[in-house]
Design a protein around this nucleic acid. Structure first.
Lengths: 114, 114
DNA sequence: CAGTATCCGACCGGATACTG
DNA sequence: CAGTATCCGGTCGGATACTG
């Protein structure tokens, strides 16, 4: 196995971008649904507050992972979807998922049961 | 691309395990060197304090990513190396690295220059 | 050398109420 | 509906000094 494949700089950046309590679940839903409204995300993610969800979405938007678009009506409609940069995370995220299911089964099952 | 490959539970667990300011760089060095002494790690990682480095190493040991072994002499010698569980992270970590270099070049270069 | 004990500030996530 | 304004407690990383 060639361990020279990764260096810590890029890894640090990637992990930094993915850090945040709700990032995984946000990405998960947007990978499965392609465009969701704010309230839709809010209701589907248990127990996150609007403020925190908004902060996460803003960060991810500024980092170019998400694209935010609003329909200018009243009441407003705002949609979030993955950008190409966000979609490109798929292989890495699924590799992490595979690893967790293979090597951290207990923690995963514990989390599922909650 | 099949986005059903990953679910958020495993992803959450994996990201949780990898969260911590110095995790990336610790893993990086241990992937490249197979067994390092505490002080060796401490000197090679810029600006981390002993306490924090120790906390990170302890966590990673408890999560089964690292194996700690001590030679009972005075002064003590303690070695850290990757376990199989830790080594199995390689594909996922290098996928993250690849993504960062491809899609987050600016941040990576910025980090490198520091 | 490796590890522990204190103390501290900054940041992060959360609760609640309010607004265009 | 989507977003903002405050306030708050806990956790995380860091500085420093000490110990087996």
């Amino acid at each position: 196995m060639d361990y020279n494949q990764f260096k810590h700089c890029g890894l640090n950046v990637a992990l930094g971008i993915l850090s945040g309590k709700w990032k995984a679940i946000i990405l998960y839903h947007l990978f499965h649904q392609e465009s969701m409204r704010f309230t839709e995300l809010w209701r589907i993610i248990p127990k996150v507050t609007k403020k925190v969800l908004l902060e996460h979405l803003k960060q991810m938007e500024h980092q170019g992972l998400l694209i935010r678009s609003e329909v200018n009506t009243f009441p407003p409609e705002v949609y979030y979807k993955l950008s190409d940069k966000g979609k490109a995370l798929a292989p890495a995220l699924s590799a992490l998922e595979v690893w967790a299911n293979e090597y951290a089964r207990e923690e995963v099952d514990l989390l599922k049961s909650k």
